[in-house]
Amino acid sequence: MAAEHADSGFNIFPMDQFVIRPLFGNHGMTWYTPTNQALWMGIAIVAVVLLLVIGTRGRALVPSRTQSIAEVFYGFTYKMIEDINGKAGLKYFPVIMTLFTFVVFANILGLLPYSFTVTSQAAVTVFLALAVFLSVTIIGLVKNGPGFLKVFWISSAPLPLRPILAIIEVISYFVRPVSHSIRLMGNMMAGHAVIMVFAGFAGALGIFAVFPVVAIMAVYGLEVIVAFIQAYVFAILTVIYMNDALHPGGH
């Protein structure tokens, strides 16, 4: 297969960047083998610690640059939860903050050359989305009991429409983890793959490589924006789903 690619003159392997490999050695993986993915998750932890812990160690009244950024992260997430969930949602602030910072840093670090994009892996995003889905469902049922089913019964709609809407609501409720996870993974995967395709063109075009290089720069800029937006979308959707658990029927 590899020979086939080489014959065509292009060395385009856009999906190679998503392969998970053991960090050490070249043999099979067990469930605890340190991989390139584990490395970049670790780097994400280091980045978060650098920003939120080391960056704020001055506890300055007039913040330094890194402390300002940490405070922006804090204030942004705090306000998002407060706006959507009210005070009741602030109990889950550390969880949402963990999710948000993890996704942001995984997205951004994935844009470094030769890095590995943790959030481009279905395993990761599906795990996160399922965790959110199950948490919301369990918290909703524990907090509200059968009242949680009001999520599917839209009391603001006309009565004859409500059973139909209930079916739609149930379907959309259970599709949530799918869309929640595929959205993030797809966005992270697509742009990176496109960049690699252009990079493959660049290798084969000689002097005309300037065109794919310019295109890569443009796509890269777009990807930086996407990295932030998708992290934000993931976090805000989590908060919105959480709202169902906290205030069912509050559509």
């Binding site: 297969m1 392997f13 999906m15 190679d16 998503f18 392969v19 998970i20 892996q121 279905a122 395993a123």
Partner: peptide, 8 residues
């Protein structure tokens, strides 16, 4: 090897 399809 080079990845085929979606490694994910």
């Amino acid at each position: 090897e080079h990845a085929e399809g979606m490694p994910q």
